[in-house]
Write a protein that binds this DNA or RNA. Structure first.
Lengths: 141, 141
DNA sequence: GTAAATGCAAAGAATTTGCTAGCCC
DNA sequence: GGGCTAGCAAATTCTTTGCATTTAC
């Protein structure tokens, strides 16, 4: 269900926002994040915070928690789930396959360290793009 | 489909780029490749990286992946295996757990598309860094 | 030798940012 | 009012290009 996005560039601001979000246990409001990011980047604007939070939510990096009215809150600990990435159109789909948490333990043992999380991504061509390709192959290559 | 290309000479730069690409399982960005190649060839330029990547794609040696978020990524079609990434020291370890090829089919069904490959990465803290941390906590105030 | 490839730097294309003013619940 | 969004010029990010110089064949 993730929206296909033309291009998402990497920026310092977005990086800082993610870092702040990942380094807190609270579920901060946009304004709190704003104050934090301002400490290391005094010129950042509130609009940027909002826009990036929106982007990060669309990218699946961050979860939006609306506690009724008032401030929306944000959370970087998006529960583990898997993605399918279309090489053609860049679309990213969330997958339904169950999360294999036990792998973390297994890998933890193998590397003799602590495993916090894992990411699993599938790459290929989505149904729509395959249809598109077939349509084209009908005419010219 | 291959564009008419007068002649393609073999160069150290292109060799280095291919080697870097073949020695990683990630799908690196042009810039990441640049940093790697620079380690053994400090004068290489970003333009050269881009030009060669383009050439290699045309030659069919390398695949270009427009991963929805971020820069274009490149892939030298290596066999699948999994990685553990230490958040502390950045070390990347290859893992021994068996490759779950059947997942590709399963996901292909779910998204009604074609799955070419998948990538699985574990994140956490490696044994050495944990030891390091314990050492610090034990001694320093 | 000579065409292809490189390094450097500067231009391009496209997204993001910082403001500020305005929106809506 | 307080949280949030819109509009736009300027700034950034990533990629490509022009050109003098090297390099591979």
């Amino acid at each position: 269900m993730t929206k296909p996005r033309g291009f998402v560039r990497k920026t310092k601001q977005r990086g800082a926002i993610l870092r702040v979000l990942r380094n807190t246990d609270t579920h901060p409001t946009a304004d709190w994040i704003y104050q934090e990011v301002r400490k290391e980047m005094p010129n950042v604007s509130l609009g940027t915070i909002y826009r990036n939070l929106k982007t990060l939510v669309e990218m699946g990096e961050v979860q939006e928690l609306s506690y009724g009215s008032g401030h929306t809150r944000y959370d970087a600990k998006s529960h583990t789930h898997y993605h399918f990435v279309c090489d053609e159109c860049g679309r990213i789909e969330d997958l339904d396959i169950p999360c294999m948490q036990d792998l973390n333990r297994e890998v933890g043992k193998e590397v003799q360290g602590h495993v916090r999380e894992h990411r699993l991504e599938f790459y290929g061509v989505c149904g729509e793009c395959i249809a598109e390709q077939n349509r084209k192959t009908g005419s010219v290559s």
